[in-house]
């Protein structure tokens, strides 16, 4: 059986970043839940392509550095996203990456949502900002998402971050394994014959 491809989008800006930390933990939990299947993980640090994203928005095309990352996301069997919450929503850079994803590239792809913030009072940003965004993209969004507030990283309470991460990873793995790989069509290979294009007009 071929390896599963997991793309991880992480939009943290600092070094080290708690958003990256969350992304890595979600990745580990997902890979563990998928065992014994082999998983190839491709991490996309949005900061690495921040200028390329601006250029893409302005010119309409991706630099080679950005293109390999967009390809990795579009070709992934499942995607984990993690963004800091800024001003009650995902970060602007994170949204720029989503804005330049080719149309339908996440349609029917299982996606796990993660977000970080200073306090747990921002946790609903996942449900009022991230979830509608990925619904718009047609992704299969895992029902379990993880919000990590600063205080969570120091907590040992039951039901704390570690357990939530593990549950989320399991949810994504279940979605992925129960989900046939979405069919992708290449408009340059699977040409619509001209007669059909003409025919649609008379339909």
């Amino acid at each position: 059986m071929s390896a599963l491809r997991l793309a991880v989008i992480t939009a943290g800006l600092t070094q080290p970043s708690s958003t990256r930390l969350l992304a890595d933990r979600l990745t580990e939990a997902t890979v563990a839940a998928l065992a014994p299947r082999e998983v190839v993980v491709e991490v996309v640090e949005v900061r690495d392509v921040a200028h390329d994203l601006t250029n893409h928005v302005l010119t309409g095309f991706a630099s080679p550095e950005l293109q390999v990352r967009l390809d990795a996301i579009a070709e992934a069997d499942a995607v984990i996203v993690a963004t800091p919450v800024y001003a009650a929503s995902y970060s602007g850079l994170f949204k720029m990456l989503v804005d330049v994803l080719p149309k339908d590239s996440l349609r029917d792809t299982p996606v796990l949502l993660g977000a970080t913030g200073g306090t747990a009072r921002h946790s609903l940003a996942i449900d009022h900002a991230l979830r509608p965004l990925f619904a718009h993209l047609g992704a299969l969004v895992a029902p379990v998402a993880v919000f990590a507030a600063s205080e969570d990283w120091g907590s040992v309470d039951a039901g704390s971050l570690g357990a939530r991460i593990e549950r989320a990873g399991t949810a994504l793995a279940r979605l992925l394994l129960g989900n046939a790989a979405p069919e992708r069509s290449d408009p340059f290979e699977d040409v619509t014959p001209f007669a059909a294009l003409l025919g649609e007009l008379h339909g």
Binding site: G60, P187, F188, V191, F194, L197
Partner: peptide, 25 residues
């Protein structure tokens, strides 16, 4: 791709603007 297909169907010429986009396109 529909426009490349259209040009091919009629045997007309196809022009690629080619100035704002990478050669791969």
């Amino acid at each position: 791709p529909e426009i490349a297909e259209q040009a091919a169907y009629y045997g007309d010429g196809f022009f690629s603007n080619h100035i704002f986009w990478p050669a791969s396109h």
